[in-house]
Design a protein around this nucleic acid. Structure first.
Length: 562
DNA sequence: TTAGGGTTAG
């Protein structure tokens, strides 16, 4: 009987090896379940690994939890599988605690992956507990275990502890050096120390060179990065992608595109980097075109890719497109992590569906400053000022620290709700409690708020108090308020400054001419129009990056399709 | 076991 069962297990193990997609894997899994072989540790281990490699952590979790007494090997395979999706509910740290409760002793294959998750979740507390156990059980003699410790402390920013592990190791390999090098280079702020490690290490591989490259890129030292890139003894897809990111992050999209087009091989990360480059530099149409090309090549996006695709869609607007993208996320089983959900909240808000934005926000288990800000800004721009302020107060109650963008939402909420004194109070809170230095956009919000409610003198004072000098955003808001309330005196003052800063912006000339006209000062209005003509300032045609169906082209917009 | 891609902006 037992022998027969073992035979079947072997047969299924062989069958599983041939499963290359989710369809035939689930079919084989179904047969395993029918014969009640799913409690077999070895089959369950293979299933968990395969589901994880096909990016189906939910299936993997179901397999794992249906085994009543998981053995060490199954724990190890599951921990390894889930270390790729550390934010998933059954994360390696939980599995590790479970194995200790089950009195199963972790070994040298367990620790590196658990430590990886501690690093990914930035949990040095758990990490040092694991460290303690490693020391007590004598596993510090294993190179991969110590290397993972260096990496974990380095990624959590505890460089002293990383060095302590490094220094106490009797034997080190290139991985140990790379881990400590990466810890210094990553942020790009201490490249001198990184350089010292790099120069002193006994042996270097492509990973060591890439770690230095990343450091220069993240520190904004693009020329040094390029110098290094050109002289590397060996380059792989990571080196090329890092260089590509260097260019796109500093706004050199065209150079980034050249790198992308010339790199010898591209993977999902390279495609995502290029898509993100376009999305973050105001070229959402180009981002979506790249995404389509990537799909046509059969490359499946992941959560990171989709975050940028969603952000690009948000910039283009349109409720149909927003709904399409959301159902795409569902259909392709993209992990709905915090960043994906935040991007979806923002997208729906920008595409006019604030209810959809609120619905998605409720799905976020622990909203952070990004998620709260996206919702607050969204509510404010839809005119739900008091609802935005409610969300802000809930955010503070939850202990989430607002940032400068949150306050842009809060101040514009006050502006739209017409509650000026509240707005002034929030300004105080921003500056005094949160020590946030107001930037030009905050001033623009305040000027807009004071101006809308007719407090033009205070708005003017606000403009004059700007430490960076009057900026077009704030001046424009004040000029608009001057038109609403017919205040020519301030308007002339403001317009003069504004035209000096933005001589090519037609809106400013028109606004001033309108103000003169509304007060019956026809000669002055005409004078502005003449100046406009002399400067050859003509209305700029509307411009779009995407093909728009003819029915949606507004009659008053000259469309320049690129 | 070591290197690359992500969300919020009057």
């Amino acid at each position: 009987m037992q022998r027969n069962r073992n035979k079947k297990v072997d047969a299924f193990a062989a069958l599983l090896k041939q499963c290359t997609n989710l369809t035939n894997l689930t079919q084989t899994h179904a047969q395993i379940l029918r014969l009640s072989l799913h409690t077999n540790n070895s089959l369950a281990s293979t299933l968990v690994t395969l589901y994880a490699s096909l990016r189906s952590p939910r299936h993997a979790h179901r397999v794992f939890s249906s085994v009543p007494a998981p053995a060490l090997s199954l724990f190890n395979r599951a921990i390894r599988a889930f270390s790729k999706t550390p934010s998933f509910p059954s994360n390696p740290i939980k599995l590790y605690s479970q194995m200790l409760r089950n009195r199963i002793r972790p070994d040298n294959f367990t620790y590196p992956f658990v430590l990886n998750s501690c690093a990914a979740l930035s949990c040095p507390k758990h990490g040092s507990e694991v460290h303690g156990r490693i020391l007590r059980t004598g596993f510090c003699g294993y190179l991969p275990v110590c290397n993972a410790l260096i990496d974990m402390y380095g990624k959590c920013g505890l460089l002293g502890l990383a060095w302590k592990v490094f220094d106490e190791m009797p034997v080190r390999d290139v991985v140990s050096y790379n881990a400590i090098l990466g810890a210094h280079a990553k942020a790009g702020v201490d490249m001198e120390s990184a350089r010292r490690v790099f120069d002193e290490m006994p042996e270097r591989n492509v990973i060591s060179w890439n770690a230095m490259l990343v450091g220069y890129v993240n520190g904004g030292e693009l020329e040094l990065a390029r110098y290094l890139f050109d002289r590397m003894p060996e380059r792989n897809v990571v080196s090329w992608t890092t260089m590509l990111v260097g260019y796109t992050k500093s706004g050199c999209l065209e150079l980034g595109r050249v790198v992308f087009d010339t790199m010898p091989e591209r993977n999902l990360v390279s495609w995502t980097a290029m898509i993100t480059g376009y999305a973050q530099n105001g070229r959402p149409g180009e981002a979506l075109r790249m995404f389509r090309r990537m799909e046509e090549l059969g490359m499946k996006p992941d959560a990171v890719t989709m975050t940028s695709v969603i952000s690009a869609t948000a910039q283009l607007g349109g409720p149909e497109m927003a709904n399409f993208i959301e159902s795409y996320v569902d259909k392709e089983m993209i992990e709905r992590n915090e960043r994906v959900l935040t991007a979806l909240v923002d997208m729906h808000a920008k595409c006019g569906n604030i209810e959809g934005a609120c619905r998605l926000f409720r799905e976020i288990p622990h909203p952070d400053v990004f998620s709260y800000s996206a919702l607050i800004v969204g509510l404010a721009s839809h005119g739900h000022g008091s609802k935005a302020l409610e969300v802000f107060s809930r955010m503070r109650g939850e202990g989430v620290e607002p940032d400068c963008i949150t306050f842009i939402g809060v101040l514009s909420a006050c502006s739209h709700a017409g509650i000026v004194d509240e707005g002034l109070r929030y300004w105080e809170i921003m500056v005094k409690d949160y020590k946030i230095e107001p930037v030009k956009d905050h001033y623009a919000c305040m000027v807009d708020m004071l101006g809308r409610s007719g407090r033009l003198d205070e708005a003017f004072e606000m403009v004059k108090s700007m430490p960076m000098g009057p900026r077009p955003e704030a001046l424009g808001a004040l000029l608009a308020a001057c038109r609403t309330y017919g205040n020519v005196e301030i308007a002339e003052n403001v317009a003069l400054k504004l035209l000096e800063l933005e001589p090519d912006n037609t809106g400013n000339y028109s606004l001033l001419a309108d103000i003169y006209a509304s007060r019956g000062r026809w000669d002055d209005a005409a004078r502005v129009r003449v100046v406009m003509k002399e400067k050859r300032v003509n209305k700029l045609p509307g411009c779009s990056w995407v093909e728009v169906p003819p029915s949606r082209i507004r009659a008053d917009t000259a469309l320049q399709v690129t």
